[in-house]
Design a protein around this nucleic acid. Structure first.
Lengths: 251, 251
DNA sequence: CGATCTGTTGAAGTGAGTCAATAGTGGTGG
DNA sequence: CCACCACTATTGACTCACTTCAACAGATCG
């Protein structure tokens, strides 16, 4: 079954309970032994409020390339990523795509703006999600300042990240975009190895480039010894300082 | 006195009480008769809390081209725009600029992310601001869920706007960028006339283009009858539907 | 009424895009 | 286990939208 069919099927079903996503069996209090709780928004909740969140959550799994939500659909569900990686993107009628972010374990999808999703979300890898019904979540949010405080914090961080990305898209060269991207993908500050769960096209759609330019630029950076490609989805940063300078536009 | 000098002076003084900004004399309760209160975040406050906000606010005026805050400075002040227009921007070491937003009456500057401003702000026109000391404001915020709720709302709206702008910067042509920009500058949905308080360079720095491309593209849109330039800072949208199609990429 | 800034227009250059061929890569079934 | 297939990534040749460099025109203001 080609991906396009999966996607069109998914676009028809507005509900994440669709046959495409697998409901995960969980205990009555699934949140208590959650592996990503510590790094997720839900860690601000305790006691009663935590119990309320646990009560409305459902676990759900998506396969690689499955659409989780589609822009334009009714925003009835909110998500938290338990495992895997997700892309968030906007599309244009002629097929142009702008990916606005990649998310992974512990990230919250859908600080809601309106009743309609402004973005699509798709699984880059097999993904496990916590799903919250919008209504119940909003009710909890209204009664729980600590939760709102935490989401406000997340929203501010997202605004800052979005503005950094605007600078990248508006003013950086392809080399600078790739350097910035690779440095951002470093999770631990000490690491030098990166795993890229996304394809070249997805990197291109994130950086406002084409697949070919991404590939050529990575090859050039390799030739110049700044990085090493240790597999098509693995990169080692060989000269972090020069990459930092490049990313900042000092080169 | 050239602009560059004003800016470098301003960058030395981290405090908006600097000689460059004029302190506005105000009554003991300046907020009560505020013209922009209805459209500002402060409208959510009442009674006691409103009084507390009034107590910490100071009025301040900036001339055209004055720097209000500079990225990298300590984020000790928050602002609300009472009159005039402001640009928010990020810069690169070699002088490249990306404007991330234009703000006007009623807009709040500085949903704070860290202790350091991530952006610079400069007056496009003569500007009057409410200035709040960060500490006092944060204290009020911590004790007033309604305020936080409102700012959360603003932050969410900003995230959505930022993502729209990423699509523009990453994937739209110069024509599409200008069409999108002009439609966004329409304040009332029924209007067709736009006043642009910013220069061609500033439009370019917002849209990720050069001044020349902005000028040429506006000329082309005029030649094609989509807009009319009724002064270098005034535009009339002659064919809104075609502009909308263009902005959406359906053309 | 010149000086200065901002905006427009023209000509030439270029970084990234497009189109196309080739080379890896991973999954599947014989 | 390998051979094939389908897909993804790389590389090359060429094109083009936007930039750069430069001249000119209009506005604004002492």
């Amino acid at each position: 079954m080609p991906v396009s069919e999966i996607m069109s099927e998914s676009s028809q079903s507005k509900d994440p309970t669709s046959f495409l996503s697998r409901r995960l069996s969980r205990s009555a209090s699934p949140c208590e032994q959650c592996a990503v709780r510590a790094q997720s928004f839900c860690s601000v909740l305790e006691g009663q409020e935590f119990a309320r969140l646990s009560a409305i959550v459902t676990g759900r799994a998506f396969a690689r390339h499955q659409t989780i939500v589609q822009e334009g659909d009714r925003a009835d569900w909110l998500f938290n990523i338990v495992a895997g990686a997700v892309k968030l993107y906007r599309t244009m009628p002629d097929g142009r795509v702008q990916i606005v972010g990649f998310l992974s374990e512990g990230d919250f999808v859908g600080i809601p703006v309106s009743d309609i999703y402004a973005l699509s979300a798709e699984a880059l890898t097999p993904v496990e999600l916590c799903v919250f019904p919008r209504r119940s979540f909003d009710r909890l949010l209204a009664e729980c300042p600590a939760l709102e405080h935490r989401l406000f914090d997340l929203a501010r961080t997202e605004v800052a990240a979005a503005r950094d990305h605007m600078l990248l898209l508006g003013r950086k060269s392809a080399r600078e975009r790739l350097a910035t991207f690779l440095l951002n993908e470093l999770r631990q500050p000490e690491a030098i190895d990166i795993f890229l769960p996304m394809s070249r096209i997805e990197i291109a759609d994130y950086l406002g480039l084409t697949m070919e330019t991404v590939s050529r630029t990575l090859s050039a950076l390799t030739r110049q010894g700044l990085i090493a490609l240790t597999g098509s989805d693995r990169v080692r940063l060989m000269q972090i300082d020069r990459l930092r300078a490049l990313a900042a536009g000092e080169d």
